[in-house]
Simulated scan of single mutants.
Amino acid sequence: MDVVCHVITKLELGGAQEVAMRVVSSLDRRRFRPVLIAGPDGLLTEEAHALQGVELRLIPSLAREIHPLQDLRALWELVATFRRLRPKIVHTHSSKAGILGRIAAWLAGVPCILHTIHGYGVTPAQPYWLQRLLIGLEWMVGRVTTHWIAVSQADRRQGIEWELFTASKVSVVRPGIDPEVFAARIEAAERDRLRAALGVGPEDLLVGTVSCLKPQKSPEDFIRVAALVCQRMPAAKCILVGDGELRPRIEAMIQAEGLQEKVTLLGWRRDVPALLKALDVFVLTSQWEGLPCAILEARASRVPIVATRVGGAAEAIVEGIQGTLCPAGDVRALAGRVCQILGDARLRADLRNGSEELPEEFTIQETVKQYQSLYTYLLHSRRPAGNTMKLQPNRLS
């Protein structure tokens, strides 16, 4: 069996983390021995320990914040780990783990080094000089990257434009979810009971989001949208599922807007499939994304969606079928779309009933299948001539 190491900075509740965990737990054990490497103190660490047949290695110095001495220590701890494990493939996720993990894999002589772009670390909020610095750093580390994976066509195009990679060195593989968990039907009485537990009455209309409280997700915009929606629609209530660094600011905004009786912060929850079924509208206010799993989960749950048009959102949502997309930061447009859906029961029903099943490309089964196919191709392409196989570009690019 070939050792495959997946590296991610921190096992918090997030799309990149959950995809990495699903992939390592689903790899064919007859062909691959999966190892998951991460920083400490993540909310998903205990779940990762429980993954059957997956070895978990925690690197104490691997943290999201930039700290030169600690980052150098993490680099050498990763090099030592790779030298002990002797993986044939190192597959990194997220910007920080992507930089350190790929350099460490190269120093350790790992033959195949892959990186998945779950959205770039280069963001609109950064000054121009920092954006160019980060793009340059990605370009340099890209010289030791065997193959790149983008979760959206938008990220693939952006990387080619920045000259991080050529078209032949990148594949689009979606961050799949398990649609059955979210597509399961719920009885009306059970939905009413769940909504009642959230403080939502039979005549109320419930708007919600699922996201980490960090700048990328712009939870402040969600509160601004909530304020406008609740002003126009007295029956509206809102829930925010998630937690993070911006929680104190969000709590202060709720107080300042007088939304204490209208907006509830639920923190991190593990019953997201049930909570999505309690919603009348799902909202995502991200400023930038790769392709958010939360949108895929809401779509699989057949909840009407109002989201920002960032990253691969337009590749997962068909306008007028699953919901609608608005420019990032346009709070009034987002609130207007939410109110339109809340105020039209027929439209809500059409959006719920007209949505087709989640396409196969967005399922975790297809994600694992494409990863394994790519691994096999890359491993064979580095063996002596005569043992190679052809890449199927229609599946992987």
Rank of each mutant, 00 (worst) to 15 (best):
R73F: 06
L75A: 02
A125E: 12
L69Q: 09
G136M: 12
A97N: 00
R102Q: 03
Q70M: 15
I89L: 15
L72A: 15
L137K: 10
G98N: 03
H91C: 07
I113P: 00
L133C: 06
G109Q: 03
P111N: 04
V141M: 04
T92Q: 08
R86M: 02
L78S: 08
K96P: 12
M140E: 06
T116V: 14
T145Q: 07
V144L: 07
I113Q: 02
V90W: 11
S95Y: 15
H118S: 14
G121D: 12
P111R: 05
V122Q: 01
P87G: 09
V79D: 06
K88F: 10
V141Y: 07
A125G: 01
Q126R: 03
A125N: 05
V79L: 10
R86A: 11
R73C: 08
S94Y: 02
G142V: 03
H93V: 02
A108V: 15
L85C: 04
K88I: 01
L134T: 09
K96G: 12
W106Y: 11
G98P: 13
K88N: 05
A74K: 09
D71L: 00
H118Q: 08
S94I: 03
K96W: 12
R102S: 01
A74F: 04
T116D: 12
E138L: 15
P124F: 04
H118W: 10
C112W: 14
P68Q: 13
L72C: 08
L75P: 01
G119A: 01
S95V: 00
P111W: 02
V110Q: 06
R86L: 04
I117F: 15
P87W: 12
G109D: 01
R132H: 05
S94P: 08
V79R: 10
A105H: 07
L134E: 02
V90P: 06
L75V: 03
H91S: 13
S94A: 07
H91A: 01
K88Y: 03
R84K: 14
R102W: 02
T123N: 10
E138T: 12
W76P: 03
H67C: 13
P127M: 05
I117G: 05
E77S: 08
M140L: 15
E138G: 05
F82E: 05
A104V: 13
L133A: 14
W76R: 08
G109H: 03
P68M: 11
W129A: 11
G98E: 04
T116W: 15
P124Q: 09
L114K: 04
L100F: 10
